[in-house]
């Protein structure tokens, strides 16, 4: 995969990379905040459309840039929503780190067998699974929490699939644009 992160030799490339990271982080934060404004049918369930941005950046520009975008999104997003260093922030950060770890695993697979859909589903499941574990260890160490595991995992599987399809479409469009330019 052609990666801008690999071409850190020139200052111009680095500047371009930073601009891309900032732009994509801003986009992800906007989506994040829009999502936070909508009421959720189930507590703790959000579509996680901001992860589309992370997955697209990951597939096109590599893991390091995706990590930069995701970390910026969690930090700045929580500052804007007002949940910085709160339990919500801890859950969000832990989920984000787990999703990035899942994407890192995808990147390590030889031959790149997994595309946008698989990467997004893996990231979503890792995100939700880790959040549940953090919730159990830090906040609600009660077996009743396990009853929530199946529906929440179902939701993250569905939303991961949907955002994976969106990400696949975006990656496709980006690829054709890059080819024609």
């Amino acid at each position: 995969m052609q990666s801008i992160a690999d071409t850190t030799g020139s200052a111009a490339a680095a500047g371009q990379r930073d601009a891309l990271v900032a732009g994509f982080a801003a986009l992800a934060i906007a989506i994040h905040i829009l999502e936070a404004a909508f009421p959720s049918p189930l507590p703790g369930v959000k579509p996680g459309l901001a992860n589309v941005v992370t997955v697209v950046v990951f597939l096109r520009w590599g893991w390091r840039m995706a990590a930069a975008v995701a970390v910026l999104r969690v930090l700045v997003g929580s500052l804007l929503v007002g949940s910085f260093l709160s339990p919500t922030f801890l859950m969000s950060a832990a989920g984000g780190v787990a999703a990035l770890a899942a994407l890192g695993l995808v990147a390590l697979l030889p031959g790149r067998p997994v595309g946008a859909l698989g990467a997004s589903v893996l990231a979503a499941l890792a995100h939700m699974g880790t959040q549940l574990m953090v919730a159990y260890v830090l906040f609600i160490p009660h077996s009743a929490l396990f009853g929530l595991v199946p529906p929440l995992l179902t939701a993250s599987l569905i939303f991961g699939t949907v955002s994976g399809m969106i990400a696949a479409t975006v990656v496709d469009i980006l690829a054709t644009e890059a080819d024609s330019s």
Binding site: G118, A119, L122, T161
Partner: peptide, 8 residues
Amino acid sequence: SIGDLAVL
């Protein structure tokens, strides 16, 4: 890809 479907 097949890998995507396998993950799913």
